[in-house]
Design a protein around this nucleic acid. Structure first.
Lengths: 219, 219
DNA sequence: AAAAAAATACCAGTTTTCAGGGATATGAAA
DNA sequence: TTTCATATCCCTGAAAACTGGTATTTTTTT
């Protein structure tokens, strides 16, 4: 890894024009101060929510890279990533997250992200990741590829929209009947979805379901 | 709140000599860049784990304030806070955390912390918090004192040893009968504890129980 | 257009949880 | 010493969840 971070290695095409998205001001500030060290990186805009970020992307068509937190309060970083890649296919996306949320990584990939960096990464690693991604490569924080993570891809099972919706309502304490009423469905239907959730999470009851779901950040 | 952050208001005693502790490099960088804006604040040292932080505190006796993340990988920020206040009573401690972990705040207080700031706080708020605390006052992020939090001091209810034990087994998916067998109790007894858990958490069913319990870190 | 995935709905029987009581023993705190 | 919190145990009836199926329609993908 290059020690002279402010001197971009040859072969890198153009400037990185970046939008930062993270709901924590401190992380935003940290990234800003890390990235402005590098001469080939320019922070065009920063946002604390997905909506603002979207507006800013339309306003600044020169942006070619988005660095986004995976866990956002409103929309998830995964959904945001999918949206960006659909609307602005030329923009590369790198996810940021804490170590624990590793289970999202594969989902990020499926939605077009090119990289993933943990929040405990240092300046060199982040800048390296940005350069790699802008050169069309992928970059993933080394923590992601440890034995633990390969052996235990305990990751979040792929849920359908309906399943996510019902899972969230279960977590809020609604019963099958409550949910059926709320979503204008038959209680039988809700129960079927619940069964599928238990199956997908490989658990036997609601207690385990909610525990696993919160562990992987799906609730 | 003072707009000229770099001009300390009169009446503030001395320089803030700070140690930062957070396992996320980005947050550390963010805090550094925020705090160095202010003339009366000096970052003496930064650490990514409690052990390093402790060594640094011994090495730098001039430190008079510690800013620490509440969620650390090894020791919790709460334990670290207690340790600091015991060994270095003159040092003030401010906790940092995400909004969700607000339930820890009272525990931080009990262990001698003087303040608490959320990670989404802006520069003014953080600097203001530091000044207040160094003047012997307390400071808590406004998010902590919102209606939601006062009405719902949803913080972790005080559980007995038995209740914690049973809660943990429920989260693992065991039924009342399973737990009864495991702990050599009557299923009736287990059920009574379960009811008390539901009551203490103010919830109606297991789903909500597990959700709330994980939110406050009790599972 | 065909195939696959997702969403919908149904049923019967069993297990588990929940609501709402009552009751006793013990150790710690007031 | 008396109260209080904790832990224990018991009961009934109702509500909800779970097991193990089947089956049709709609949407999405190939």
């Amino acid at each position: 890894m290059d020690k002279n971070l402010n001197i971009p290695p040859s072969g890198v095409r153009g400037l990185a024009k970046i939008l930062l998205l993270d709901d924590h001001f401190m992380v935003l500030e940290g990234l800003k101060s890390i990235l402005t060290q590098s001469a080939d990186i320019e922070i065009i805009a920063t946002a604390v929510n997905a909506f603002d970020a979207h507006v800013l992307l339309k306003k600044h068509p020169e942006i070619n890279l988005v660095l986004t937190d995976i866990n956002l309060p409103d929309v998830s970083g995964i959904e945001f990533c999918a949206k960006v890649k659909k609307e602005f296919p030329h923009i590369q996306v790198i996810g940021i997250s804490t170590f624990k949320q590793r289970s999202y990584v594969s989902q990020m990939m499926q939605n077009g992200a090119s990289g993933y960096v943990v929040k405990s990464a240092n300046a060199e690693e982040i800048i390296f990741a940005i350069r790699e991604v802008l050169n069309g490569k992928f970059y993933f924080s080394s923590e992601i590829n440890t034995a633990e993570n390969i052996i235990l891809p305990d990751s979040a099972p792929a849920l359908t929209r309906r399943e996510k919706e019902i899972l969230s309502l279960i977590a809020q304490g609604l019963t099958n009947n409550d949910i059926a009423e709320k979503l204008f469905l038959s209680p039988y239907t809700v129960d079927t979805h619940r069964k599928n959730l238990l199956f997908k999470f490989e658990v036997a009851n609601t207690a385990q379901l909610i525990k696993k779901a919160t562990e992987v950040g799906l609730v």
